[in-house]
Amino acid sequence: MDNEEFYHLKTFFFNLDLTKEEEEHFYSLWTIKTFNQYDLITEAGSTERFFYVVLEGVQALYVLNEKGEKVILGFSYSGSPSGVFDSFIQQKPSQTFIEALKPSKLFSISRSDYDTLFDDFPNFYKWGNEFFQQVLFGRLEREVELLTLTADQRYKSFMQRCPDELKVIPQKYLASYLNMKPETFSRLRKSILY
């Protein structure tokens, strides 16, 4: 792990106040994993072994519907967390897939090492509290958008907030995330400015 990679991890855990020694121990718990485009990072039916922080690439989180089609729940990208968190915490088989939509590099930490973070670094509870708040608020906002906004509004709202690296992934993934058909997404892309 080089200095630049350290920096990415440090940015993610911005509110951890660590001594030099603690910092070394903290970084020693993480390993970098690389994935090719279309690799499955986590398979539904298997138990999530890692909590990830994305260094490079875009990943899609999805479940399969009854027809076997991918229903996109969300994306992870540079600087964001990734992984199937419920499966990771409960150590039960996941219902969700994570797929690398672009070649990806992710920091990973195992469940046992993740647990030691809370034991070894009291500041980690503060990070945990803020992290879970962000996740919860994000999910609530998305639920409200899906239930109350029109397709046009959902498209506009998403495109305004989404990072550039997400705008270049295949349209069918973005369309599914916004709960619309790819044809609708394509029409909106041509007609709506955001």
Partner: peptide
């Protein structure tokens, strides 16, 4: 009958767990 590898992997994982 539409077949997708993801659906097949999910079902195989369930069987392996069982």
């Amino acid at each position: 009958l539409i077949l997708s590898p993801e659906n097949q992997i999910q079902r195989l994982n369930i069987i392996l767990n069982k």
